[in-house]
Every structure is written in structure tokens, then in C-alpha cells.
Design a protein around this nucleic acid. Structure first.
Length: 817
RNA sequence: GCCGGAGUGGCGGAAUUGGUAGACGCAAGGGACUUAAAAUCCCUCGGGGGCAACCCCGCACGGGUUCGAAUCCCGUCUCCGGCACCA
């Protein structure tokens, strides 16, 4: 009855508005987090449509990834079958919710017609030197038997399965996001439409720091070690040098067996382990000789893979020095005088001591001066370092985009020619969950010819990180699915996304990769846009109380009857309110909710219970309240239709509280939506109008006209929130065409003005009384009226009036002594 | 540890730029309708005092600025989020 489909007109005229919600992983069914996310996006899309924008509002499926493969391993279903069944079901759910998507642009990243373009981008990046292969130590999840990006390691554990991550050396493909780090960082400040906390997280993730690279000559050898430090002011306090276990000189200087031991502790947050190499290095500032160690806590991936250790002023070095009984030399003292603490490193800036010609200088100045000294000696240079690393995209998995590379004995790694794309995933693969890449077992896939010499060759068997899929899908949507994937004109018209809505959990991963990809797309000449997402709204989590039975563990809401467990009758323990999750069983199934209350209620509650960026606490009672509100409007329309039908098309003429309230409500709702999408207060305003409407008793034709006017505006305003009810009631009221085609109602600021205002009178800043006065009195008149009141006379009698303030025509404050 | 953010009734939350604290909803209590229940409707609803008109106290806590502070400043506490051997 209410088709949510908005077929695309194909026209690219008028101002566009691209409204996008993060596409879901097709896990099986949607959850309340999706409902909330998509309800927010849909209100925005519908509102903007009513405001006359040509709205692009697409939806698709982030459909590559581990769960499909795990299902294949567990249940023997092919990932493709599992995925497509899930998509079919979830699409039905989204349609039931009345989300106004243009399904003609639907995409699924697991389809060859989509991932072909992942491969195409990969090859373009390979050609530009932005994709490269290298061996490196990587985070490896033994349980998933795959590589994880740094972002996918949480507290040393795998983000998916929680296994402890280990370090393993592998050949991997990388994308050179670091080529764009400076631009990404600088452009961060321009992201005015983003939550500042997300911008900050990105900046911290990129992690720019300025410092000095200094060369320490290795005594008795032609070698030298370059270290990076942000604290050149502590150079005179360097007591030893530490190399990362993977540093080339570590291998050269250290005993192999002992070095292996150190390597075992690399990348782990445990105790510090060190190994003396027997060599000494020469401090470039004062020619002091200090010992060279290999240490497990020094990162190869950051800076130069070697550090100068200043135990007096760096806690890590301090701990290391303590353990190995090494000397501590203080070179910075607190500026305030006083002694630096002895039991730990003093890491703050201060005044230099014991630092040759720099003694007495402040840290900031000394950093510059000592850096200059090193530069002048030709033993170093000031540099900028970033925390950000290149993006490793290789995954030893089946259900992902094959990396389009062919390995030939003669020609090496050769990209698959564009005309041969896509490299399609083979079907003849067994899912055992053991070993490395499943693709390596498919003979038909593995064996191929070299594109350049036609000799025998084999294919790359790794697939791409799925973040690759989601880094550009918003660009794909710009063109219909039956059209070209990367149409410059379409992209030029729709990009950038005007409003992006999704979870804050993607603050660094997906959003940073997308910003990188957009720039690559720009540099390929496909778009002029650099920033993909103009405005970003990160909605909060959907939370619910947890319930636990001492016997049966976590309980579903339906398993707790009052305070006892439905299974065993023991009294249950009501835990804290947490994000809805299957493991804690504190979930509400959207299907059940829609069956019981309808899609409009599900939407309305999600939007009313909290502002979008806050966490939302689920409450069954609150849902009932939302439902009741819709029912009240429903009943009101039906109860009054007979009276209202004859006044159709007649606009009210007079002034009245109801008419005023109607204009005020339109004003408030418009403002609340425009300003930060405060749907909760917009809905509250509409509730107030309904309260007034239901209390209204019309006595003549004019009253009926006003009633009808108010009701029509109400339905228009609520239609983006509750499209089904609004549409049906619109029809009930005898309107000829769909409410979806109506424009957003306007308001008359004059008509919204109150005739009288409530004047607040304070004495010494405390409210003493309130009185109704006509609108528009001058400050002087207001003061006079206030002073004339007997209450005020009493309050100020016998006291000296020091001053009287009048504020914005609505408040008077009398200051007495 | 470092960097952010937030603390308002029993609860979710309101309160443009400092100017009526608690909109709206939920829960609770009382009442109407009903044989009864549900549904619906009406009233009360931050705390304390007073028969009352009214008064006092209240936005985590302690100070400050101001005629006036939930809002600005300083300090303290608590909670949440991000990063975490990044040299």
C-alpha cells in the first residue's frame, strides 16, 4: 500500500542532496541499531525532499567478510548463498520500515560487477606506486588465520574473535595512505560538519610529531645509527641506544639466538627485555660513547627503528635502565626550581643542566638550538614523523575481492590487464577453516598465464580487506546499477555526500580510508571532490538493561517475568544498561516490534527517546508512549472527519491560540530539524500541538477551518517520521494525492507571535512574580509596570533601589540594597 | 598514563547568544467512565516549611566573575569514549 520505493527520475536538475547511511553487513537480520541509523537518515531524506531537493538516498550491502565464510565452515553453506539469502530477508525488513531508498541503485560488494572496480582501483594504484608489496611483521590472528590491521587489534586481541594476536612475518600488499597523511591531517580542520571528537580521533590517529633525526656513529665500524627524538633538549642525557629487534644492525651486531629471544617479546605489552650488542655509539652532540642494545619495546614501524634512551626523562627508558642497572643522567630540571622526582622519569619541559653550552636554557629553546647544532655538524636533520602506517590489505581469506596480481617466474608480479577484469572468485573451494588462503587450493584459479610473457604463472591467492569495498561505495551509488560504475558526470553532480549517518565505531577506520580513497579518485581525474562527506552524524548506541539468572545466565527480555526467571523461578538480577548484543541477550527484535506496534512506532520511538548522537535507552513503556501518540492523532482524524470534510480548501482568517500554536510548531519543528537534527524536540513540539488540538472545542466555521489547517500541517510535519500513518490519514482527510509529494509547510512569523507575554519580575535576580503584559512595550514601560505591582512594592519597601534591568522585553530585574 | 566528552526530578530528556530550571514523554499517585478489567479521559507530580497568599533549598561537589550562572572561569570528584611502549 505504501511503496517506499522512490524510483530515480534520472533528472539531475535543481539542488541535489545526497543523504547516505552506512550500509549494513548482511548478517541475517537487521537489529535496532540499524533501525535507529536508518530512521535518522530517512527523516533527513524525506525532509529534504519536501524542501525541494533532488535527493539521492541509496542503500546497499557490505557483503564480503568473515561471517559468511564462518557459516560456510560451520554449516557447509556457500558464502554466496548464505549472503544472498540474508540480503533478501534484510531488504524486506528495510522495506517494511518504510525507508525511502532508491533501490535502482542498490549494490552488493560481493558481486563481480562491484568488486571488479576494487581490482581496477588496485591496479591504478599499483601503476601510480600507491600499491606495493613488502614483507613485514604483521598482526596475525591464529584463530581466524589471517592478518589484521592495527585498527583491528584491540588490546592485543582480535576485534572479531578476541584471540590473542601474534606477530608473524609475511609478504603483504599495502596501499600508500601515508602519501596523503599530510593532506589528510591538514584537511581535518576543514571538516566543519563533522563531530569534533571524530576529527580529533583522526588527527591523533595520523599522529604528526616534529623532531630531530640524529646520527650516532658506531664506534669501530663504518656504520651509523639514526634515531628519532622529539626531545632534542635531552640529547646530553642519552645513556644508551636501543634498536628494534628487526633493525638491520640488530641482526648484524647481536647473537642470533639471543636476538630471537628478544623478538619473541616484541610487540607485547609485557616486561622490557634488552640485549647488549657489545658495541658503542657516539653521541653527535658531545662525542660521548654509549652502549648499543636491542630492546623488545622499540618499534620498527615508527621513526627509524632505533631510539636514544634518556632514562632520566623518559619513563620507558627509565624502567629499562632500572632493570639492567644502567646509569641515569639528569639534564632537565623543573622550571619552578625544586628537585625532579627520583623514583621515576621527569618527562616535562624544564631548564637544562649538565648539557654543555646549553645548560641553563629552557627546553623549547634548547630543542631548536641543539637541533641546529646537529644539523650544522651534518649529523642529523629536523624531520616530521607520523604515527599512521600504510594500509595492509591482504587477507588470507576466500570471501573477499581477489587481488588482481599474477606471479610469473620470469616477470615477477604482474598486474592483471584491465580487459581481463574482474578476476572472479572460483566456486570450487572447500571451507575447512584451516591453513592459509582458501584460494590457493583452487587449481583452476591458481594456475594461469603471465599476461606479459604468456609463460606459466600463478595468481595471488590473498583477497582484499573489506574496508576496501566500503571506501568508495558512495561513489558507485552516484550512477544507477545498470549504468557505468564511475560516470564522471554523475559523480560530479551528486558528490560529495551532504549528510552521512552512521556509528561512531567507524571514526578512524572506514572514514579515514574513505577520505584517502576519495583523494585517489580525485587524482585519477574522476572527480574534483577531496572530502567525501560534507556532514557527518554519528548516532549513539541502542542500549538496554541486562537481566541475569543465577542458574541460566543472561536472559532475553521475554525470559524474565517480573523479578523472576521464567525457566526456574529464581529471582533475577537486573544489571547495567548496555549496548544491545546477542551475547548479553538484551535485545529487541525489530520484526517483533513492527508486528506489535508497526513501523511508524519503531521509527518514532527511535527518534524521540534521545537526540541522535546520544546513546538511546530502550524502553518498552517508551515504545508504548510513542504508539499512543500516533493512535491519538489517528483517532482524532477519524473522530472529526465528518465535521472537517466540508471546510476542505478553506484557509483560516482570524487569529487564535490554536492558529498561533500551529505556526509556532512549524517554526520549532523546522528549526529543530535544520539545527543539528534534534528530532526529539521536534516531536515534543508536535505532541504539544496535538495536546492543544485534542482539547480544542470548535464552535463555528472559522474554528473548523483552523482545526483543519492545524491538522493538515501536523500531518505534513509528521510525515517524514511516520510516513505510513501520515499517508493514510492524508487520504482519510480527502486529499487527492500522496503526502510524499507535498512541500514542507511554511510558517508566518507574524501569526506565530503572542499578543501578550508573561513578564518575569526579579528582585536581586530572584523571581518574585510574573504578570501578563501586552507584546512590544518599551523597556521603560516594562520597568514602570513592574514597579507598580504591589508584590514588588512589598518586596522592595524600605530598601534602596540601586538599579533596574529590563531584558529582551520579557524580564525585569530590580537590584536593591 | 595521555587526549577528548559528560554529570539536570524516580527515569529518558528540555532550557538559541548568561535572563522564568524541569518543555515533551515514561513511571508513580488520585479521580471519571465500566458489573469488572483493558483502553480512553481529567487532576497531582524536584525537596522542605506554612491553614493560606507565600517562603526557603535545589542543575555532581567547593570556590569565583556578574544585577543575574545549568550555561562563563578556577579547583575537586565520578562516569563514558579514544589512544596507549609512537621515543
Amino acid at each position: 500500500m505504501f511503496s517506499s520505493e522512490r524510483p530515480d527520475s534520472g533528472k539531475q536538475t535543481g539542488p541535489k542532496f545526497y543523504c547516505l547511511e552506512m550500509f549494513p553487513y548482511p548478517s541475517g537480520r537487521i537489529h535496532m541499531g540499524h533501525v535507529r541509523n536508518y530512521a535518522i537518515g530517512d527523516v533527513i531524506a524525506r525532509y529534504k525532499r519536501m524542501r525541494g531537493y533532488n535527493v539521492l538516498h541509496p542503500m546497499g550491502w557490505d557483503s564480503f567478510g568473515l561471517p559468511a565464510e564462518n557459516a560456510a565452515i560451520k554449516e557447509g553453506v556457500h558464502p554466496a548463498k548464505w549472503t544472498h539469502e540474508n540480503i533478501a530477508y534484510m531488504k524486506k525488513q528495510l522495506i517494511r520500515l518504510g525507508l525511502s531508498y532508491d533501490w535502482s541503485r542498490e549494490l552488493a560488494t560481493c558481486l563481480p560487477e562491484y568488486y571488479k572496480w576494487n581490482q581496477w582501483f588496485f591496479i591504478k594504484m599499483y601503476e601510480k606506486g600507491l600499491a606495493y608489496r613488502k614483507a613485514s611483521f604483521l598482526n596475525w590472528c591464529p584463530s581466524c588465520s589471517t592478518v589484521l590491521a592495527n585498527e583491528q587489534v584491540i588490546d592485543g586481541k582480535c576485534w572479531r574473535c578476541d584471540s590473542t594476536v601474534i606477530q608473524k612475518e609475511l609478504e603483504q600488499w599495502f596501499l600508500k595512505i601515508t602519501d596523503y597523511q599530510q593532506e589528510l591531517l591538514e584537511a581535518s580542520d576543514g571538516l566543519a560538519g563533522w563531530p569534533q571528537k571524530v576529527v580529533l580521533m583522526q588527527k591523533n590517529w595520523i599522529g604528526r610529531s616534529e623532531g630531530l633525526e640524529a646520527e650516532f656513529r658506531v664506534d669501530g665500524s663504518g656504520e651509523h645509527i639514526t634515531v628519532f627524538t622529539t626531545r632534542a633538549d635531552t640529547l646530553f642525557g642519552a645513556r644508551f641506544i636501543c634498536l628494534a629487534p628487526a633493525h638491520p644492525l640488530a641482526e648484524k651486531f647481536a647473537d642470533p639466538a639471543a636476538l630471537e629471544k628478544i623478538r619473541e617479546h616484541y610487540g607485547k605489552l609485557d616486561e622490557k627485555h634488552g640485549l647488549f650488542t657489545g658495541r658503542y655509539a657516539v653521541n653527535p652532540a658531545n662525542d660521548e660513547k654509549i652502549p648499543i642494545y636491542v630492546a623488545n619495546f622499540v618499534l620498527m614501524e615508527y621513526g627509524t627503528g632505533a631510539i636514544m634512551s634518556v632514562p632520566a626523562h623518559d619513563q620507558r627508558d627509565f624502567e629499562f635502565a632500572q632493570k639492567y642497572g644502567m646509569p641515569v643522567k639528569v639534564v632537565i630540571r623543573p622550571e619552578s626550581g625544586g628537585e625532579a622526582p627520583y623514583a621515576m622519569a621527569f618527562e616535562e619541559d624544564g631548564v637544562l643542566v649538565d648539557s654543555g653550552p646549553f645548560t641553563g636554557m629552557k627546553s623549547a629553546e634548547a630543542r631548536t638550538k641543539i637541533s641546529e647544532l646537529i644539523e650544522n655538524r651534518g649529523l642529523g636533520r629536523r624531520v616530521v614523523n607520523y604515527r599512521l602506517r600504510d594500509w595492509g590489505i591482504s587477507r588470507q581469506r576466500y570471501w573477499g575481492t581477489p587481488i588482481p596480481i599474477i606471479y610469473c617466474e620470469r616477470c615477477g608480479a604482474v598486474p592483471v590487464p584491465e580487459k581481463d577484469l574482474p578476476v572472479v572468485l572460483p566456486e570450487d573451494v572447500k571451507f575447512t577453516g584451516k591453513g592459509g588462503s582458501p584460494l590457493a587450493e583452487s587449481e583452476s584459479f591458481l594456475n594461469t598465464e603471465c599476461p606479459s610473457c604468456n609463460g606459466k604463472a600463478r595468481r595471488e591467492t590473498d583477497t582484499m580487506d573489506t574496508f576496501m569495498d566500503s571506501s568508495w561505495y558512495y561513489v558507485r551509488y552516484c550512477s544507477r546499477k545498470d549504468g557505468p560504475a564511475l560516470d564522471k558526470e554523475n559523480i560530479g553532480y551528486y558528490m560529495p555526500v551532504d549528510q552521512y549517518v552512521g556509528g561512531v565505531e567507524h571514526a578512524v577506520l572506514h572514514l579515514l580510508y574513505s577520505r584517502f580513497f576519495m583523494r585517489v579518485i580525485r587524482d585519477l581525474g574522476i572527480s574534483d571532490v577531496s572530502e567525501p562527506f560534507q556532514r557527518l552524524l554519528t548516532q549513539g548506541m541502542v542500549c538496554m538493561e541486562t537481566v541475569r539468572c543465577p542458574e541460566h545466565g543472561w536472559l532475553y527480555p521475554s525470559e524474565a517475568e517480573g523479578e523472576v526467571c521464567a525457566k526456574c523461578g529464581r529471582s533475577v538480577e537486573r544489571g547495567r544498561t548496555e549496548k544491545m548484543s546477542k551475547s548479553k541477550r538484551n535485545i529487541v527484535d525489530p520484526d517483533h516490534l513492527i508486528n506489535t506496534y508497526g513501523a511508524d512506532t519503531a521509527r518514532l520511538f527511535s527518534l524521540f527517546a534521545a537526540p541522535p548522537e546520544n546513546d538511546l535507552q530502550w524502553s518498552e513503556k517508551g515504545v508504548e508512549g510513542a504508539h499512543r501518540f500516533i493512535q491519538r492523532i489517528w483517532a482524532f482524524v477519524h473522530d472529526n472527519m465528518e465535521k472537517l470534510a466540508p471546510v476542505k480548501g478553506l484557509l483560516p482568517e482570524g487569529r487564535s491560540p490554536l492558529l498561533r500554536k500551529t505556526h509556532q510548531t512549524i517554526m520549532r519543528v523546522t528549526r529543530d530539524i535544520e539545527r543539528q537534527y534534534h528530532f526529539n524536540t521536534a516531536i515534543a513540539a508536535m505532541m504539544e500541538l496535538v495536546n492543544m488540538l485534542t482539547a480544542f472545542e470548535p464552535s463555528d466555521q472559522e474554528d473548523l477551518r483552523q482545526m483543519r489547517f492545524a491538522l493538515e500541517r501536523l500531518l505534513l510535519m509528521i510525515s517524514p517520521f511516520c510516513p505510513h500513518a501520515a499517508e493514510e490519514l492524508w487520504e482519510t482527510m480527502g486529499m487527492p494525492s500522496s503526502i510524499q509529494r507535498e512541500p514542507w509547510p511554511g510558517y508566518d512569523e507574524e501569526a506565530a507571535k503572542e499578543d501578550e507575554i508573561e513578564l518575569v519580575i526579579q528582585v536581586n535576580g530572584k523571581v518574585r512574580t510574573k504578570v501578563m503584559v501586552p507584546q512590544g512595550l518599551s523597556d521603560e514601560e516594562l520597568k514602570e509596570r513592574a514597579m507598580a505591582l504591589s508584590r514588588i512594592q512589598e518586596a522592595v519597601s524600605g530598601k534602596q533601589i540601586k538599579n533596574v534591568f529590563a531584558v529582551k522585553g520579557k524580564l525585569v530585574n530590580i537590584v536593591v540594597k
